[in-house]
Amino acid sequence: MTEEIAGDQKVMGRFRVNGDEHHVAYAPHKTLLEVLREDLDLPGTKHGCELGECGACAVLVDGVPTLSCLLLGLEATEREVLTVEGLADDARLHPLQAAFADLGGSQCGYCTPGVLVTAKALLDETPKPTREQIQEALAGNLCRCTGYLQIFEAVEAAAEECAP
């Protein structure tokens, strides 16, 4: 049977974000970005255009880098969402986070959440990426501060760190 969700009232949805389950009422025309920031109190995910043109809002959905500004909240329920808030292992930084903080991968920090989760997906798939693979993977995340080079180096350093 076709499922129907009406547009004019809030609906209940079950969101699995960073391993936590949230059962919340949300407006069904909201994107995942709005649900995260406004309904789930997770402002770590940023927005720079809300039109898919910058990558600041990137999150992982079922492990895949996804633009939360273009994904409807109602299509994100019951899926595994990972945001920057879920990267650290309790209080311990993820190796990517540590490398970005140490090596200049983050200047103003605004594109950083989207870059970090995208880089995590890369390392999950390709533990020892080449510089070209890193560039390709991060080609959807605009950064105006760094010139990217320290970002690439931080990803490479994290890959070293993660290696068994």
Partner: peptide
């Protein structure tokens, strides 16, 4: 924030 206008969603 740019937002999506309301709609009915059929799946």
């Amino acid at each position: 924030m740019m937002r999506v206008p309301q709609f009915r969603y059929l799946a």
